[in-house]
C-alpha cells in the first residue's frame, strides 16, 4: 500500500507540473480559439533561458522567474502580433495550424543549431532534494511546482473574474463582435492573452529547469501531454486544465508502475483519443470543443 500511495503522491506532484504548462495552452485556446502547436517550444525557450542565466550568473533558477516570465510574455506578444494576428480572419483553419507548426519546427531546429542535440542540466540548487513525510518521499522542486500550479490557476481565475481587463478577455472569448461593441479592442486583448499564456509557460520553465534536463525537443514531450490535459479538462477551462492535469499525473504515475514504464504514454494517448472522440468538450468544456 505504501508503494501505491507514494505513486499517488508522485502523480499529484506531476499533475502540478502538467497544470502549470497546460494553463497557458487552454487560455490561448479558450480566448483566441487557436490551438498553439508551438506551445512546447515556448517552454523549451524558457528552459534554455533559465539554463543559460543560471549557469552564467550562478543564480537560483527560481530567482529567474521574473525575467524569464517577462521574456516569454514579450515573445508571446510578438508571435501574436506579427504571425498570428494577420491570420485571424483567414478563410481556413489550416493556415493557423501551419503557422504554429512552422514556428515550432523553426524553434526546435534553431535550438539544435545553437545548442546541439545534447541535453543540458540546469543546476538544481536543492530542488532535487527529497523531503520525507513518514514513509513517503517527495522532491522539493515537485512540491514547489505543485504549489505554484495551484497559485497560477487560482491567480488567473481571480484575474479573469475580478478585473476589468480579465472580464474583457472573457467577454471577447464569449462573443467577439459584441465585445467590440462594448469598446473593447479585441486585437489588443488577443495580444495580451497570448502574452499571458506564454508568460505562464515562462514560469513553468523556471520551475521545470532544475528538475528535468533541457534539449531542443523537450517541449514536444511536455506539450503532447499538455494537449491531453487540456482536451481532457475541456479546451478553454482553467479549472478543467487543473483537474485534467492531476488525473493525467496520476495515470502517468500509476500506469508506469502497474502496466509498463514504456507504455504509459500509450495509456495517456488512448485516454486522449477516447475523450476527443466520445466527449470532445472534455470534462468541463462549455460545449464548444468541436469547433
Amino acid at each position: 500500500m505504501t508503494v501505491f500511495w507514494q505513486l499517488v503522491l508522485n502523480g499529484l506532484m506531476l499533475g502540478g507540473l502538467f497544470a502549470i504548462i497546460s494553463v497557458g495552452l487552454t487560455l490561448i485556446f479558450g480566448i483566441i480559439r487557436l490551438v498553439n502547436f508551438a506551445h512546447g517550444e515556448l517552454l523549451m525557450v524558457g528552459m534554455y533561458a533559465t539554463f543559460l542565466l543560471t549557469t552564467q550568473l550562478g543564480v537560483h533558477p527560481y530567482a529567474l522567474a521574473p525575467p524569464v516570465v517577462l521574456l516569454l510574455f514579450v515573445v508571446g506578444v510578438l508571435i501574436q502580433r506579427f504571425i498570428l494576428q494577420p491570420l485571424l480572419e483567414a478563410r481556413d483553419h489550416h493556415v493557423q495550424i501551419f503557422a504554429t507548426v512552422g514556428l515550432s519546427t523553426a524553434l526546435i531546429n534553431l535550438a539544435l543549431l545553437l545548442f546541439g542535440a545534447d541535453i543540458h542540466s540546469t543546476p538544481a540548487y536543492g530542488a532535487r532534494t527529497a523531503l520525507s513525510f513518514g514513509p513517503f518521499r517527495i522532491l522539493t522542486g515537485h512540491v514547489v511546482m505543485f504549489v505554484a500550479g495551484i497559485l497560477v490557476v487560482g491567480g488567473l481565475h481571480l484575474f479573469l473574474q475580478r478585473t476589468y481587463l480579465g472580464r474583457a478577455i472573457r467577454a471577447t472569448a464569449q462573443h467577439r463582435h459584441a465585445a467590440q461593441l462594448m469598446g473593447i479592442d479585441i486585437n489588443r486583448i488577443y495580444i495580451i492573452t497570448f502574452g499571458i499564456g506564454a508568460a505562464c509557460v515562462g514560469l513553468a520553465a523556471t520551475l521545470v529547469a532544475p528538475m528535468y534536463p533541457v534539449s531542443p525537443t523537450v517541449g514536444t514531450y511536455f506539450v503532447l501531454t499538455a494537449f491531453v490535459v487540456v482536451v481532457l479538462g475541456g479546451m478553454g477551462s482553467l479549472h478543467g486544465a487543473f483537474i485534467g492535469a492531476l488525473i493525467i499525473g496520476l495515470v502517468d504515475s500509476l500506469s508506469g508502475y502497474y502496466i509498463a514504464p514504456d507504455l504509459k504514454e500509450v495509456v495517456i494517448f488512448a485516454i486522449f483519443l477516447l475523450i476527443l472522440l466520445v466527449r470532445p468538450t472534455g470534462l468541463f468544456g462549455l460545449g464548444r470543443g468541436s469547433e
Binding site: 501551419f98 503557422a99 512552422g102 514556428l103 519546427t105 523553426a106 526546435i108 531546429n109 534553431l110 542535440a117
Partner: peptide, 14 residues
C-alpha cells in the same frame, strides 16, 4: 549545421 534544414523548413512555412 545540424538543425539547419528544419529551421529553414519552419521559417519558409511561416
Amino acid at each position: 549545421a545540424i538543425g539547419l534544414h528544419g529551421f529553414i523548413y519552419g521559417t519558409v512555412l511561416v
